[in-house]
Computed example of a mutant assay.
Amino acid sequence: MNVLIVGANGQIGKMVVEKLKKGKKHNVRAMVRKEEQVADFKDKGIEARLADLEGSVDAIQATMKEIDVVVFSAGSGGSTGYDKTILIDLDGAVKTIEAAERAGVKRFIMVSSIASNHREKWSGDMKPYMAAKYYADQLLEKSGLNYLILRPGMLENEPGTGRIKVGIETAIRSIPREDVASTIVSALDYPTISRQAVDLISGDTSIEEALTQLA
């Protein structure tokens, strides 16, 4: 399959791109917003397509030519203001969903956030981010796309363990970014996981077994 990673220059996005390229099972394309990023990926033997999530839906759709699966792992980052949270994490995600529907993309994998579907758990400075994730996920669920929404726990930079827990969680726990990336890559091989939204944290089950249980 041809897989487009939106947010390919982010921490999880980079890992997904690298794992897909190394695995050689799927053709990976990176969506980035700067010309120098296109060149960087090209130097690594990876095709990159240029579009800005603050730009038009048409421009984003143009990056989806011959794409089967879109993975949205983009984010405004913790160093930006609430304006960028709205423009990237919410409106950028919404534009990408609209573009995917127009382009006839078969599948959409969204990287969301644990507890974003529970307003009572939103607190402090995270409220705008959680709200952005909540409404972007809501729109995806109402779309006609075959979606998988992954809501990872608190993200860590520790090495991945390859063991996770998926489902509906009552506690906010953590997970290495590498395990989130590995779960995304493995999920590509489970097309029957359709129109589901699940929490994703570290656990005792292998990624493959956990995904098999969802399929």
Rank of each mutant, 00 (worst) to 15 (best):
A93S: 15
L155K: 03
T170A: 08
V71Y: 08
N9G: 11
D137G: 01
G13E: 02
E47P: 01
M64T: 00
A131D: 01
S186W: 05
R151N: 01
E208C: 05
I12T: 15
L188F: 02
Q37E: 15
Q37P: 12
G7L: 12
V28Y: 03
V94R: 15
K121P: 06
D189V: 12
D89W: 08
N157C: 02
V180H: 08
H26L: 03
Y134Q: 08
A51D: 06
A74R: 11
I168D: 04
T63I: 13
A136N: 10
A62G: 05
A74F: 00
A99M: 11
Y135A: 00
L139E: 11
I46D: 10
N157R: 13
E158T: 13
N157T: 10
S174E: 11
F72G: 00
P191T: 04
E101R: 12
T96K: 12
P128L: 12
E208Y: 01
V105K: 05
A132M: 11
G92S: 14
A215S: 15
F72D: 00
A215M: 05
T80V: 07
R49C: 08
E54M: 14
P128V: 07
I60P: 10
Q138L: 04
A197V: 06
E209Q: 14
A132N: 05
I88G: 07
I12Q: 06
K22I: 02
E158K: 14
V111D: 07
R102C: 00
G104N: 08
F108V: 01
Q196V: 09
T192Y: 05
A103N: 04
L214Y: 02
G77M: 03
M154F: 08
S174M: 12
M1K: 11
A171G: 03
N2A: 13
K95E: 12
L155R: 06
N9M: 07
V28F: 02
